[in-house]
């Protein structure tokens, strides 16, 4: 474990929190104000009657938009741009969707089991046409369990950075550099949790979320492969190029 001064941890925590706020796509207050706006039944019917490929394309676009903000988040984390370019790409390929899932808890309404999507709050039924009910259920369950931790914005920021800087990703060239950065981020996260007087078990709960995130992303890949097998041309010509780069 690296020796890091309290001042350095404080500085890193501030840098990561600031980067998160600057790149979070929607402010929490904005999302809370919108939370009473759920899709009406006829709008839900509209989504459900979309052809499968059209709904997939829409979701791929939304995911890609969210990921672009995550790339910007990564770039602003102290030390990320000092990693070699191969490793920056490896970390983003493996971790950007995970961070989108973490960030999703900010846009999730636990009372109604809805998430902000395409301008309003949507329940799992809105995503029916995708034909991957299990994945959707898992994503909603994950958001719900993340929300139950009641993380503050700085805790979400630090946890997102910790997820993104995972040193165990395959194909890293300078694993040691990433490891150092992740360890520092973990210390900064612990520092913030202590400062916020969180209960002792919170870190181990967050560790469980790391494996849940990996399984969600693996499921996303499986579902994408199954979809691509049926609609190769749709993916090739209508999906966002960045989405294909990340998940192709």
């Amino acid at each position: 474990s690296p020796t890091v001064s309290m001042a350095e941890l404080e500085h890193l925590a501030q840098n990561i929190s600031k980067s998160h706020v600057e790149t979070c796509q929607y402010l929490r207050e904005e999302l809370q104000q919108l939370s009473w706006q759920a899709f009406l039944q006829d709008e839900v019917d509209g989504y459900q009657s979309k052809p499968r490929e059209v709904m997939w394309q829409l979701c791929a676009i939304k995911i890609t938009e969210a990921i672009q903000y995550v790339v910007e988040f990564a770039k602003r984390i102290d030390g990320f741009m000092e990693l070699c370019q191969n490793d920056q790409i490896v970390l983003l390929k493996a971790g950007s969707l995970e961070v989108v899932f973490v960030r999703m808890c900010r846009a999730f309404d636990t009372q109604n089991n809805t998430v902000y999507f395409d301008g309003k709050y949507a329940g799992p039924d809105v995503f029916k046409a995708l034909g991957c009910d299990d994945l959707i259920t898992s994503v909603f369950d994950f958001a719900k369990s993340m929300c139950s931790l009641h993380l503050s914005e700085d805790e979400i920021a630090l946890f997102s950075a910790f997820v993104l800087l995972s040193a165990d990703r395959t194909w890293l060239q300078e694993k040691l550099q990433v490891e150092k950065l992740q360890q520092k981020t973990q210390l900064a996260l612990q520092h913030v949790l202590q400062k916020n007087q969180r209960e002792d078990g919170i870190l181990s709960k967050l560790r469980c979320k790391v494996s849940a995130l990996r399984s969600l992303c693996a499921r996303h890949s499986e579902n994408l492969s199954a979809f691509r097998a049926v609609y190769p041309d749709i993916v090739r010509s209508h999906f966002p190029p960045l989405y294909k780069e990340l998940f192709g």
């Binding site: 790339v71 770039k75 920056q88 790409i89 983003l92 390929k93 190029p241 960045l242 780069e245």
Partner: peptide, 16 residues
């Protein structure tokens, strides 16, 4: 590099 053209571009763009 060609395989991750857009990611490369996004990473190289200066942060706004």
């Amino acid at each position: 590099k060609e395989k991750h053209k857009i990611l490369h571009q996004l990473l190289q763009n200066s942060t706004s």
